[in-house]
C-alpha cells in the first residue's frame, strides 16, 4: 500500500474541469493551503466547491474565485469575500446556501451511505421550499439529501503513511466528514509520520477514508480576526 505522494501537484494529477470538490476549513482555519494553491496553478475550471465558507477576497478558496475557476459554491456562510459577492450578484457564480449543521450532516450522510435525513433546522423558512417535510414526534422536519464529491481536500496536523489523521484544535471542523464522502480523499499534513507512530486511540480519521497523503509545506495559516487581550 502506497498512498504517499510527493506534493500537492501530484496529488491532484487527475483532477479535471467540472470536478466536485469538498474542502475542509472554517474560514481560513484548517484550510488545505497547498492543495488550494495547486488547484489554482492547474487552472481547472467549472468546479463545484463544497466548503463552509469561501475564504476571503485573496486568501484560501478565495483565490479560485479570482481566476473564475468556480462555477458553484455549496456553503453556509460567504460573508467575508467581496469578489464572491460581485460574481454572485453578476450571475457568474451559482450559490447553494445550507444551514451549517445541515451542511455537516449532509456530508456525514454522504460518507455513511445514508439516503438523507429529516431535520427541524430550516422548517418553515425559505430553505424548506421544494423539500419534503413531515411531522415527526410533533415537530415539523424537512428532508435533506446526502452530499458526495469527486475529491475531498483536507489539512491535518499529523498523518501516517497509511492515511490515519489527527487534527489540531478547531482546525478539525468539517474535514473528518469530508474525508468519508469523496471518491478520492487527499490529505496534506503538517507532520507526515511512520505507520505506528500515532496513538490509535487518538486517530480522528481512520486510514480507510484517505487515498493520498503528503507532507505540506510553507504553511501561512492566516488569521481573519486577530483578537487579543492585554498580557
Amino acid at each position: 500500500m502506497n498512498k504517499v505522494v510527493a506534493n500537492a501537484d501530484e496529488a491532484i494529477r487527475d483532477l479535471q474541469d467540472g470536478a466536485v470538490i469538498m474542502s475542509g476549513g472554517f474560514g481560513l482555519c484548517g484550510n488545505p493551503e497547498n492543495l488550494i494553491k495547486a488547484i489554482h496553478r492547474k487552472g481547472v475550471k467549472n468546479l463545484t466547491i463544497i466548503s463552509n465558507n469561501c475564504g476571503t477576497t485573496d486568501k484560501g478558496l478565495g483565490i479560485l474565485l479570482q481566476t473564475r475557476q468556480v462555477r458553484k459554491m455549496v456553503s453556509s456562510y460567504v460573508g467575508e469575500n467581496k469578489e464572491f459577492e460581485r460574481q454572485f450578484l453578476a450571475g457568474e457564480l451559482e450559490v447553494e446556501l445550507n444551514p451549517q449543521g445541515t451542511l455537516a450532516e449532509r456530508i456525514r450522510a454522504g460518507g455513511a451511505g445514508l439516503g438523507g435525513f429529516y431535520t427541524p433546522t430550516g422548517a418553515g423558512t425559505q430553505i424548506a421550499q421544494g423539500k419534503e417535510s413531515r411531522v415527526i414526534d410533533g415537530r415539523e422536519m424537512i428532508f435533506e439529501k446526502p452530499l458526495k464529491a469527486d475529491y475531498a481536500i483536507v489539512r491535518a496536523w499529523k498523518g501516517d503513511k497509511w492515511g490515519n489523521l489527527v487534527f489540531r484544535k478547531t482546525a478539525r471542523n468539517f474535514s473528518p466528514m469530508m474525508c468519508t464522502a469523496a471518491r478520492i480523499t487527499i490529505a496534506e499534513v503538517e507532520h507526515l509520520v511512520e505507520v505506528g507512530e500515532l496513538d490509535p486511540d487518538q486517530v480522528h480519521v481512520p486510514s480507510v477514508y484517505v487515498n493520498r497523503i503528503f507532507q505540506g509545506t510553507s504553511y501561512e495559516k492566516p488569521i481573519e480576526k486577530r483578537t487579543v487581550r492585554k498580557g
Binding site: T170, A171, P222, I223, K225, R226, V228
Partner: peptide, 21 residues
C-alpha cells in the same frame, strides 16, 4: 477561554466568529 495575549495567538484556535481565542 478569553482572547489570547499576543504570545498565545494560535491560528488553529478560533471561535465561530473567526476570532482568535
Amino acid at each position: 477561554g478569553p482572547y489570547p495575549t499576543e504570545a498565545e495567538i494560535d491560528p488553529d484556535l478560533i471561535n465561530a466568529g473567526k476570532e482568535t481565542v
